[in-house]
Write a protein that binds this DNA or RNA. Sequence first.
DNA 1: CTGAAAGCGCTTACAG
DNA 2: CTGAAAGCGCTTACAG
Lengths: 341, 341
Amino acid sequence: MNVTIIDVAKKAGVSPSTVSRVISGSTRISAATTKKVKIVMEDLGYHPNLMAKNLVSRTTMTIGLLLPRNADEAFLDIFFSEVTRGILSKATRAGYDLLLKTGKSEQEELEAVTRLVKGRRVDGIILLQSRLDDTVIRYLQQESFPFVLIGRDRERPDILTVDNDNVQAAYDVTRHLLELGHRRIGYASGPLELVVSADRHEGYRRALEEAGIEPQPGWFVSTELVRADSTSAVRALMDRPDRPTALVVMDDLLAFSLLNSLSELGYSVPEDMAVFGFNDNPMSPVSSPPISSVDIGVYHLGLEAAGLLLRSVKGEQPEQRRVIVPHRLIPRESSQPIKVT
Amino acid sequence: MNVTIIDVAKKAGVSPSTVSRVISGSTRISAATTKKVKIVMEDLGYHPNLMAKNLVSRTTMTIGLLLPRNADEAFLDIFFSEVTRGILSKATRAGYDLLLKTGKSEQEELEAVTRLVKGRRVDGIILLQSRLDDTVIRYLQQESFPFVLIGRDRERPDILTVDNDNVQAAYDVTRHLLELGHRRIGYASGPLELVVSADRHEGYRRALEEAGIEPQPGWFVSTELVRADSTSAVRALMDRPDRPTALVVMDDLLAFSLLNSLSELGYSVPEDMAVFGFNDNPMSPVSSPPISSVDIGVYHLGLEAAGLLLRSVKGEQPEQRRVIVPHRLIPRESSQPIKVT
DNA sequence: CTGAAAGCGCTTACAG
DNA sequence: CTGAAAGCGCTTACAG
C-alpha cells in the first residue's frame, strides 16, 4: 500500500488535518510542527494522492486542450504543435498539467468536452476553432465553465478569446501586392465555415475595393476544390482571360499545393503568379521559391490563451476579454513586383 | 451542485450500488433495472465524477507522456509532434486520455514522474529517451509502474521498449554511400549520452570496417561543436587533407546546419560533400538540394509504444518486450555518386 | 439480481 | 495553533 496522510500523521504524532495544513502551506501552523511533519513526509517518501485531493478540493491543476481533428491528424499541421508548445510553456510555469483531447466532429467534440466538464477532469479548456452557432461554446458558456477560444466567435463577443487581427493581416498582404503593381489579385480560401477564413477574405476584399478594384468571383479558389483536384482548380483559374497575377493564400500548406499544380501546368512563381501565404510554415523559407508569408505568432497565441485561461480559472477578472496577437509580413521570393508585360 | 449517483439512485428507486453497476456494465443486473436507470441518467444529464471514480478504482484511463525538454522547447522538433500523434491516435481509440509532462533535466523528469506515479494521475508512462544509468527508469522499475521506453536501454534489456534498429539503419546508410563510391565517410553525431547516437555510430563504424576502411577521428563531428559554431566545425573538417567526401548525419536538423555552413564556406552539396541524414524531416525533400534521409517511422514508434503500454497496463503479458519499427532509406539529391577527380 | 456498509485519501468548517 | 468529524462521489466485497 502507498503511504497516506494518516501514516504521516501517526508517525509525526499529529492529526491528519495538521498534515494536510502543512502540505497546503496553511498559515497558523507552528514552525516546530511544520518542520516535524516535513521530516516525516520526507522519511516516508510521502506524496499526496492527487485523485483524492482533486475530489475534495474540486480543482485539478490541469487544463484541457481540445484539438478539432481526428487523433491521427492532430499535429500534422504545425499550427497545432506550435500552439501546444505555447500552452504547455505557460501552463508548466504556472504548475498546471496539460490534457490532450481530440474530436473529429462537432458531436465528438461536444462529448469530449462534456466528459471533461462533468467528470471534473480539468479546471479549464482551450478551444482552437469556432463554428457558426458552435454547440461546444454554447455548452461551456451555459455551464459557466472557464474556457478560452483561440480565434473569434462572431455571435458571442463576450467570451474570452485570443486571436490575430486577421482582417487587418489580409488587408496588409493585399496592400503589399497592390504596391508591387498587381491589380488582378486572387484569393485562395480555407474552409468557409471557419471565422478565420471569412476574416481574411474580408481584409482582402476591403483592400481591393479601396484601390478601386472589384474582386472577381473567378479569382476565388476554395480549399475544398484544391483538395479534391488541385490541378483542375488551378487550370480553371489560369485559363481565365482576366486571370490573376497574384494570389493571397490562406495557409502556406495550401500554397504548397498550388505551387505544385502551377509548376505542373508549366507556370512559374513568381513570374507568372505571385503568391503570399499565411502562418509562416517552417518549410516556406526553404521551399523553391521561398514563399512569402505572414507570421501570426502561433506560439504566442498559445501562450496568451493559457495565460488568459489561468487567470479565469483563478477567478480573476482579466483586464481584457479579447487579446490580439500581432502579425508580421515576411515577403520572400514568391511575391515579386509584377512583370511589365 | 452537480448531479451524483445518489440523485440518480433516488429518482430511479434503486440503490447507488445498482446505479454504479449499470454504469460499469456489470452483468447480473436485470434488463428492466438497467433500462430504468439509464433513462433517469439521461433525464438528469448524469455524468460520473471521474475523480471519485479514479480514487476508488485506482485507475485513470490516462497515460502520461514525458517530454525530455523544457516546456517551450518540446514540439520544436517534429519528432515530438509525430510521436505524440502516434500515441494520441492509439490512446484515443482505446478510450485513454493523454497527459503531457515536461522535464528539462533528469532531476526534473524524476520529480514529474514521481508526482504522476504517487499521485496516481496516470495508469502508465511513455518515455522518449534513456540515459546511462537512468534514474527515471530505475524509479519506475522499482515501483513496478507500467511504462514503455521509445528507444533502448543498454543496462536493462528486460524493460518494454519500442525502437528502430539504429545500428542496422546507420549500417545501411553507410553501405549506400560506399556503393556510391565514397571511401572517406564522416559521421556527424547527436548528443553522446544518448543510446541512439551510440547505436548509429556503431552501425557506421561496422560498415566502414567491413569495407576495410579505418574511420578517422578527424571525420567525426559532434553536435555540440556544431551547435556552438557550425562554421568552425565544418571548416576544421574540410581543411583536413583527408577530408571526407560524404557524411552520415544523425538528424536532418543537424544536416541543415551543416549544409548552411558548407554553403557559407563555398562548398556545394552533393558535389563537394554528399550528405545523408536521419528522421526524414518534412523540410528535407523541399530543401535545396533535397536531403537524403532515413524514414524511421516516428508515428509508428508512438503508435506501437502506446499499444505496448496499454497491454501492460491491462496486465497482459506482451508477446514481445522489444518492438522494432522498420526504417527505410530515402536517397535524394544530397547523396550522389562520388565525382571522379 | 440488489442493497447496506465500509472505504478510497484527502480537505475543511467547527470548536476549542 | 490543533483535532474530531463530516464529507467529496464513487466502487466493491459481503450478505441475502
